[in-house]
Structures are given as C-alpha cells and as structure tokens.
Design a protein around this nucleic acid. Structure first.
Ligand SMILES: [Mn+2]
Ligand SMILES: [Mn+2]
Ligand SMILES: [Zn+2]
Ligand SMILES: [Zn+2]
Lengths: 145, 145
DNA sequence: CTCCTTATTGATACAATGTTTCAATAAGGA
DNA sequence: TCCTTATTGAAACATTGTATCAATAAGGAG
C-alpha cells in the first residue's frame, strides 16, 4: 500500500488529512526499516518540518489500530514501527543479533517452526498469530577481537 | 548458586563485599522472576534499605559480566535481570504473549531449534550463544470477547 | 470563497528507565 | 586503628513515552 492509497483509506474512514499524518506516512513509505517515533521526528526535523512528538505517537497509534503498521520492541530504544508490506521477505522476524557490537541481520530462510506453532496452538489454547525467532551471538568480526 | 556462594565468589575475585552488592544479590536470590533495576530498588526501599539506583545498575552489570545473572529485554519497561539457576527449566526463553491483553507465559518444553541453531552457526559465521523464541497470539480469555 | 465546528495539534509538564561525573564514604588489608 | 582506594550515591542529564489543555487548521456548510 503506497502513500496515496493510505491517505485515501484514512479519508474514507473520516480522518482528516493533516500535515502530521501526511508527513509521518511519507516517512514510513520511504523507509523500509523499523523506525522509532523519535527517529521519525529527527528525520522530519532534518527537513525542517516540525511535527510534535505527541502527534507522531498519535499517528503511529492510529496506523497501528488500522493495521497499517506493525511494531517491534526489542533491545533498548523503545518501540519501532514499520509499514505493513515493507517487510523484506517474511512477516515475522528471524534475526541474528551480535551480542557484542549490536549488529543485526534479518535472517531470511525457510521458517523452521511452522509445525511447532501449530502444535502449540493445540496444547496452549492460544490462537497464534505470529512469532519471533532471534539468535544472539558473536558476529564474525567480533570473534576476531 | 546461593547467596553465600555468590558472595564467596566475589570475595575470591577481589571484589569488596559491600552493602549494595549484598542487598542486590539477596533480592535476586529470593526472587525467581525477572526484575528490573528499579524493581529491585523499590523492593529495597520497602524494607527501608537505601541503595542508589546507580549502584544497583553497577551490581547488575558486574553480575552479568561474571555470568551470574542473565537479562531479558522485551516489551516496555527496560532490561530485567534474573539469577542464573533461577530459570524454571530452560536457560533461554520460550514465550507465549497475548497480543490483546499482554499476558505472558513462559512456555516450558523441549527446545525445538537446537539443531537449527547449530546449522545456522555454520551458514552465518555467527558464534551463537542463545536464542529467543516468542509466539504472539490471542490467549484463551481474549478469544471469548 | 468564507465561515463554523470540532477533530487534531503541540507546548508543557511529567513519568520511567538509564548513564555520566565526581566528591564522599566505607571495605578490608597493613 | 589507620590508610588506601574501590565503591558509592547525589545530581545533572539523556531517551522514550504519556496526560493535559488551549490554540489551530481541516473540511463541510452556506
Ligand atoms: Mn532509535
Ligand atoms: Mn518494572
Ligand atoms: Zn559483532
Ligand atoms: Zn489475552
């Protein structure tokens, strides 16, 4: 879903097409990485566009409610947001994170736990929607030090 | 490893057995859940024991460096710490988190991805130390609403 | 195009977690 | 008991996030 489609959807739902909404959506459509609210704020400030942090949070909350963005929260630094459809390959994350230098790689590959998720649904009673799989360890560079 | 064993280990390594260290270690030995630095601070304040937050962080960093505590960081609220040996079954986390109400359950069971981790070590070059596996979905209660 | 209503904004104040600095303190060996 | 210095903790600050409320601007009505 691109910039104009999202604006149109908001308009249809009766939301006003304000500067705050348009600018935050623009940033999200042009960045495929996860961004924190303050990251978005900083990017806008660099363009000399001033949108209050409070409003940025409100736009992100709205987009989340409408299922247009998904958020992740791991490590320090708070919640980070990414537009639905901007994930590289998988909806869920398979990550490789260096415990020394913090380098992060999105590990792309066959999801190895689809079966497990299904099994767990039966034993736990949870209706499972997604999962995260994250590996932590020393990246090749950090092993040499 | 219990309270006295940890103190003895610190003493052997040349660390002074200070009030801050003894009190934080005491709290960690008597609580098997993950605790944040401020949680520990609050528990101590309730007992009218005043240890600066800075010192609590320093004790936790030290214990982490010595591999006596392990920390987790997910959801809001920052890093949380737990004594090694206080995990119910597994060293690493397998969690079930309700995307509606936030309920979290530590899912205990055979780790299904030990093989995968080993395979990934070869293909990625990372020296993998641990992993997280987290499932998100609706808990039984939230499904009824 | 202008006016009006009100949804939306953003400044401000506040909260929670975390780090840096540095003078004061206390641990523990002499 | 004294001395050295490892350790502490108050204070100032940084980052992420939320509550409040007066001011503003979006967009429909006329
Ligand atoms: Mn950030
Ligand atoms: Mn807490
Ligand atoms: Zn690394
Ligand atoms: Zn639930």
């Amino acid at each position: 879903m691109d910039y104009n489609a999202i604006l149109e959807l908001l308009r249809q739902k009766g939301y006003r097409l304000t500067q705050a909404r348009k600018q935050v959506i623009r940033i999200l459509t042009t960045n495929t990485q996860f961004l924190g609210a303050y990251d978005i704020h900083n990017l806008l400030e660099k363009e000399n566009i001033h949108i209050g942090v409070t409003s940025i949070y409100r736009v992100l909350d709205l987009l989340k409610k409408l299922d247009l963005v998904r958020s992740e929260e791991f490590g320090a630094g708070g919640e980070r947001f990414r537009l639905q459809g901007n994930e590289e390959q998988h909806e869920h994350s398979h990550q490789l994170i260096c415990s020394q230098c913090g380098r992060q790689e999105e590990w792309v590959g066959e999801c190895p736990i689809t079966d497990l998720a299904e099994k767990l649904e039966h034993t736990s009673g949870y209706q499972i929607e997604e999962h995260w799989l994250r590996f932590f360890g020393l990246c090749p560079q950090c092993q040499e030090l």
